Amino acid sequence: MRSSNPISATQQFILPAAGLLPGLALTGALACAAIELGRNPWLQAHGIGALTVAIALGMLVGNTVYGRFAAASAQGVAFSKQNLLRLGVVLYGLRLSFRDIAQVGFGGVLIDATVVCSTLALAWFAGTRLFGLDRKTVLLIGVGSSFCGAAAVMATEPVVRGRPEQVTVAVSTVVVFGTLAIFLYPLLYPWLAITPHAYGLFAGSTIHEVAQVVAAGNAVGSDAGNTAVIAKMVRVMMLAPFLVALSAGMSRVRGNTGPSRITMPWFAFGFIAVAGLNSLALLPKPAIAIATDIDNAMLAMAMAALGLTTHFSAIRQAGLKPLALAGLLFAWLIAGGLAINACIDALF
């Protein structure tokens, strides 16, 4: 029988898509503003990138005027925070290639792996035993300190299903201590008695954000800066297998009466696939530049959406314990990270 409403199928597609527009327009506007502000020389010099600015703008709007049009924008904001985030993480793989590993050698990879594993272990023990924090907050803070800052926190959120305030607390700790590292690491360099290459490995294996690594590395010199970025990219690459393992673990913790069903973070595999494609050097550089700009925009929109759905009251309720945990991890990244670098460098 012919449908009495021949345009119903079209409406079923258009109406949900139209519902996304207000929220996408809002997060897109905030992302554009954040990207533009992120080009400010002072912010760049201090390692404050567009993602950090985007979440700050989102929180500003979210805690002031957003309530007036939250109902109309909610669908698009949720889409930005979830779907655009996953796409952004996949395209993040265009920033590195498997050949980057060869430039730091096996020793550099081992340094990164040891720093990541030890930091995650310390975060879990101290966060749950010493500070009594909930496991999701501990994981998000630990991941942000161990891998690649805010981007790692945002990539982990869909796996652990963290609340907006938990994610924002974790991102805030990255901003606070990562920014401190920009100034502290160059001041420490003359006292460390190490080469610029060794300093680059140290900075890249222990500082939170990519932008912060760039700032702290190049403050010592271009050689140190290049090595620092490569070491950092190897840490970024380790995020994908961690997310797969975390997803399997979270599935078992949540419990199933039947066979264990793993909620697979397919965007993590996409991240690896894109990094592998980039390793083949088949894509023209202009295309990679455009894709990277699109990736920056999507990640900024996800950050803005997170800020919009975060309330200061919830952050205040978190208290000082998350900051204390992040401070402990920061101290470990400096002292423990330096020791790990020295020991492995002596072996290789």
Rank of each mutant, 00 (worst) to 15 (best):
K232T: 08
I272G: 02
L122P: 02
A102Q: 15
I272F: 05
P6D: 15
T179G: 12
R99Y: 12
P164S: 13
A181Q: 04
V220L: 13
L333R: 04
A56C: 15
T64L: 09
V138E: 02
R252C: 08
H197V: 04
A245R: 07
S118C: 14
A224T: 03
R99Q: 14
M233I: 00
A123M: 08
A318D: 09
D112F: 03
D345S: 15
G127V: 01
T114Y: 10
T257G: 15
T156C: 04
V89R: 04
A150F: 05
R163Y: 09
V220Q: 12
H311S: 13
H311G: 07
T263G: 13
L187V: 06
Q12G: 11
A181D: 09
S4G: 10
A113V: 13
L21F: 09
M303V: 00
I290F: 14
T10M: 12
K136Y: 06
G255P: 03
A231L: 07
A331N: 11
G88W: 01
F131C: 05
Q103M: 05
S3G: 12
W266S: 10
F98N: 07
V171R: 02
F79I: 00
K81H: 00
P158T: 12
I207C: 06
E36P: 01
A300Q: 02
L184C: 11
I55T: 03
H197R: 14
V116G: 10
I14R: 10
V253D: 12
G337K: 05
G149R: 00
A126R: 05
P164K: 11
A45N: 15
I290N: 10
F69N: 11
G93P: 00
A305D: 04
E157C: 03
A228Q: 04
L84K: 01
I272L: 15
G217I: 00
A228S: 11
K321Y: 05
G225M: 08
F242D: 04
G88D: 07
I230C: 05
G108I: 03
M238K: 08
A342E: 11
A211L: 02
G221Y: 11
A339F: 06
L277E: 07
F242S: 04
T263H: 12
N40P: 02
G62P: 00
V236N: 06
C32V: 14
A346I: 08
N296I: 01
F106C: 11
A219L: 09
S260D: 13
G327A: 13
A113T: 06
V104T: 14
I288Y: 05
A215H: 03
A203Q: 01
A314R: 03
F348W: 14
L180T: 13
V65E: 11
V274G: 04
A33K: 07
L329G: 01
P186I: 08
